[in-house]
Computed example of a mutant assay.
Amino acid sequence: MKNHKYLLPILLVIIAPVLSSLENVSVDLHLLITGTKSAGIPFEFEQKVIFSYKGDYQNRFVGVAFDYELYREIHPFFRNENGVFMFVLPYNEIPEDITDITYRIIADGLWIPDPVNPWTFREDSGIKVSRISLRYRQTVKEYPYIDKKDGIVTFVFNGPGSNNVFLAGSFNNWDPFMFPMEESAAGYYTLKLRLMPGTHYYYFLYNGEKRRDTRNPGRAIDPEGFAVSVVTVP
Score class of each variant (00 low, 15 high):
67 D>T: 00
99 T>A: 11
80 N>S: 03
113 P>Y: 07
151 G>D: 04
206 Y>D: 08
33 I>C: 14
233 V>I: 15
138 Q>M: 13
176 P>L: 11
64 V>N: 06
66 F>D: 09
50 I>Q: 04
217 P>C: 04
117 N>P: 03
81 E>Y: 15
48 K>P: 07
181 M>F: 07
133 S>Y: 05
234 P>E: 08
201 Y>A: 04
98 I>D: 04
208 G>C: 04
36 T>R: 15
154 T>A: 11
82 N>S: 08
166 F>D: 05
3 N>A: 08
54 K>G: 02
131 R>E: 13
74 I>Y: 15
172 N>D: 15
134 L>G: 00
140 V>G: 01
223 P>M: 14
27 V>A: 11
159 G>H: 09
228 V>Y: 12
15 I>K: 04
117 N>E: 06
224 E>Y: 12
32 L>A: 02
165 V>K: 02
18 V>C: 12
138 Q>T: 00
12 L>E: 10
148 K>T: 06
204 F>V: 01
126 G>Y: 08
179 F>N: 07
169 G>T: 00
94 I>D: 10
147 D>S: 07
42 P>L: 10
126 G>H: 06
122 R>S: 15
65 A>F: 04
178 M>F: 13
223 P>Y: 11
50 I>F: 13
43 F>H: 08
201 Y>P: 00
175 D>Q: 06
143 Y>V: 00
213 D>K: 12
37 K>E: 13
95 P>N: 07
149 K>E: 15
